[in-house]
């Protein structure tokens, strides 16, 4: 195994007296999809916010390409090639696809006062980039707000890739999507991995994680509950781990009892 592109060592994050993460260590590799799983409140969001520069760890080390780093803002992380696709996507709904794609990094041509937006290049590039990712757009002028959730995720992901991301952090990209849309996004994740990116995929849906993941990190109550390679893990085990194993058994028992009670009440 080569050197990890990102690594956290014994990272602890406190918010006042609340311990959001406790001595978490994890490694993330290029050309792999690492799935970060866990229930609400498990610490997934805190961990990715540390990785993408929103939060700084209270204790512990953060290494990028083997070097200790400390990011004070998402912009600093982005400049190193750590791109985050947030749930709200940072896309402007009323603007055309191509304007959104290049927002903040517009291609220009011309000289002096005639310096202008290279719109032909932008339109063409957007069409090509999305085409490469397997999404055919007929009209780059379509406002982003009129596209489906899966398409918007796809635009945000291909934008990150185009601008040279080495690490792609996806925060619950499939959470609000239907089955078909989610499968489009999962295809994108695989394509990004094949291009050599380290993909960190946050989800609480093992059905989405298992097919694409090479490596699974399960968080629970701010601690690492398990860190597995895909070969080491069956899908059922993953589901059990997610739900917390014995909790699932207890839940089944509780529900059975509840059902009986309802029948008795009738």
């Amino acid at each position: 195994m080569t050197e990890p592109i990102l690594e956290v060592r014994n990272v602890t994050k406190m918010f006042g007296s609340v311990i959001a993460l406790s001595e978490v260590s994890a490694k993330f590799y290029s050309g792999e999809v690492t799935c970060l799983l866990g229930d609400n409140g498990a610490g997934k969001s805190t961990l990715i916010k540390i990785l993408c520069g929103v939060h700084q760890p209270t204790e512990g080390e953060y290494l990028f390409e083997g070097e200790p780093v400390r990011f004070n803002s998402p912009r600093e992380a982005l400049d190193r090639g750590i791109a985050t696709v947030y749930q709200d996507l940072a896309l402007i709904p009323l603007m055309p696809i191509w304007r959104n794609f290049f927002l903040g990094s517009e291609p220009e041509k011309g000289w002096g006062p005639f310096r202008r937006y290279d719109i032909d290049f932008a339109r063409r590039t957007v069409r090509e980039q999305l085409g490469d990712m397997g999404i055919q757009i007929r009209d780059p002028d379509q406002p982003v707000g009129t596209m489906s959730g899966g398409e918007r995720q796809s635009i945000a992901i291909s934008r990150a890739i185009y601008f040279g991301a080495k690490v792609l952090i996806l925060d619950e990209p499939t959470a609000a999507l239907g089955v078909k849309q989610a499968s489009i996004v999962l295809h994108y994740i695989v394509r990004a991995k094949k291009r050599g990116l380290a993909v960190i995929f946050i989800t609480h849906n093992p059905n989405h994680a298992y097919p694409v993941g090479d490596h699974f990190i399960i968080l629970r109550r701010g601690r690492i509950l398990g860190d597995y390679r895909r070969e080491e893990l069956e899908k059922d085990e993953l589901m059990n781990l997610m739900a917390g194993g014995e909790d699932l058994v207890k839940l089944q028992r509780d529900l059975a009892r509840f059902e009986e009670e309802l029948e008795l009440a009738d």
Partner: peptide, 19 residues
């Protein structure tokens, strides 16, 4: 022009991408 549309459309999103 893109920046003007963006700051009116969603200032937070615009800030996130460096406008």
């Amino acid at each position: 022009g893109s920046w003007i549309f963006a700051v009116g459309g969603d200032p937070e999103a615009a800030r996130n991408v460096g406008v």
